[in-house]
Amino acid sequence: MKEEKAKLIVQGMKEAGVDFAVGVPDAQFIEVYKMLERSESGIRYVGAANEAEAAGICMGAWAGGKKPALVIATSGLLVATYHIARINLLHEIPLLILIPYRGDLGDPRWLGMYQKTTEPALKAMDVPYRVVRRSEDVVRTIKECHESARAWLRSAAVLFTEEALW
């Protein structure tokens, strides 16, 4: 991904008030992870071994007063479904979930499986989401989804397509 697009993601997180992020790195978002790891981002980044664990760490951090974001791949969303379902449906915890959207039109590699699984999985877990296709919408959408998640006490996701990231 282009570095300036990664900057937009981190800028959106900062403007939204996110101060804590947990994730498992992937190629699509690698520049985002690199920026989050730098202390000047102002966001405490915790690297997890597994996206399910990452969701749990986010829940604990939220209860402790942080404003967390779960930064995971489309494959990682499937790994984390049991935990996100419980966190969102049973505990009603406002996690902001940021996902580079593999498998959508514009993706140079055939990863259509995630086109078939990602949005239905979010719908099944009652996680409202927005698909961002233009880089100029990145910052605003992150801020709006985070604000809604906090106000509604529900998790919310933003999916960023290849068109928005490259």
Binding site: G56, I57, G60, A61, W62, G64
Partner: peptide, 9 residues
């Protein structure tokens, strides 16, 4: 995992 998040926060 939840306990880790709390402990860090």
């Amino acid at each position: 995992a939840v306990g880790m998040g709390l402990a860090i926060a």
